[in-house]
Design a protein around this nucleic acid. Sequence first.
RNA 1: GUGGCCGUAGCUCAGCUCGGUUAGAGCGCCUGGUUGUGGUCCAGGAGGUCGCGGGUUCAAAUCCCGUCGGCCACCCCA
Length: 443
Amino acid sequence: MTNRIQPRTLKGFRDLLPEPMIAREHLVNVAKRVYESYGFSPIDTPALEYTEILLGKGGAESDKQLYRFEDNGGRDVALRFDLTVPFARFAAQHVGVLGIPFKRYHVGPVWRGENTQRGRYREFLQFDFDTIGTTDITADIETVLVVHDLFDALDVGEFTIRINDRRILNGLLEQLTLLDASAAVLRALDKLPKVGAEAVHGELVESAGAPSDVADQILEFASLRGTNDEILDTLEGLVSASSVGERGVVALGDVVRGVRAAGVAESRVAIDVSIARGLDYYTGTILETFLTDLPDIGSVCSGGRYDDLAGLYTSQRLPGIGASLGVDRLLAALDELELIDRRTTPAEVLVVYFDAERRNDYVALARRLRSAGRSVELYPEPRKLGAQLKYADRRGHRVAVIVGTNEWAESTAQIKDLATGQSETVPLGDLEAALAQRLTGNS
RNA sequence: GUGGCCGUAGCUCAGCUCGGUUAGAGCGCCUGGUUGUGGUCCAGGAGGUCGCGGGUUCAAAUCCCGUCGGCCACCCCA
């Protein structure tokens, strides 16, 4: 009695109440629909893996912030920190039956023991899709289209997919004999929008060992502005001495033109040669997605092309491309932008329980409406009408169905629209049809 | 992980600098305004281990230490 355990959750781990959960489910459902419309198939993998699977042989654990421990059988195990590495293992293990090319989507929580911040948690949901087994640029084009269609369908305001090709910067660095420092250069460039050109210049000189004039060239390159076509033109000249760089420019051009040909507005897909993607396994196309109204929260969907997904686990070469939707970060952004639906009920209809003598009739009525395809909540006890309407209003039911003593006697029902306050009375037998008419178009 | 700021009712916060009467406000919640219509209005009411633990003190929400949690920066990234 006195020694109660304090209810609490771990740092970076959260409970989700109905309101954010309904919003999250919506995001996931839309993403699922879009991914499936492109032919991606669902898969799942365990949350827990052998540590060596996640870390590889080198075991560069430091930056992965792994949740790692010994399981009950003494195995060295860890929680996955993304969905890509488990997919690599999965692909290596199952290519035989899957065949290639193979397209999958995968939604699930991942864990990283890093410090929390706005939109950054220790347990968060990712929703990935990947196409493996092809190096054709078509997959790159469609990957961008998937991301585009996803955010278009999500209805989250304007957004920009920034795209780039890893080889372009590498080509430039090759020309500048700075290729060895490419990781440091990428890291510095990633900060450009945040800290500005001057600071990045400093970091290029200090961390990447670039001479000052070379740092200037890199910055000039990273600051390229203009239409996609203009940037492509400029890039061709800039990396002409590097075959890798040239291939990158060609590929980027193919992606841009392919996406354009598919009818996507130019404003939504922008070449940005400064985006780098920290992950070093990307080798070609890379992309990041930013919300126009809240760019500070960072990329909400990122991805890119890799030459060899599963080289750690199999000799079969599995090139591919994919992207990861940061569901929880996106949710945090939507919350800040006040774009989250305030409803806390999935039911569109509340059946008011008013006449205590008619319990079984109410239960039957609610069930009848459910068979007609409606989601229906029956208020669980007879109570003052006002209280029930207030309940419905707060929860976000769209309509209340009121059948009281008078209605039962006349075999009618009142449908009250909670948003407008207006109501209409219909014959009980026509209730399904009347509701269908009022609720069509809404989900 | 390192550093900074913060933690008081369901929510947003005041009080803490200069320790001391029953810890306050707004919003929200509940009840009522003669019993079948919510979101406005009026009246009343419930609700707080002052994050948690320890220390200093006659006395701590107020000072000190630790811890847990949140935010921010670094880092990394979704």
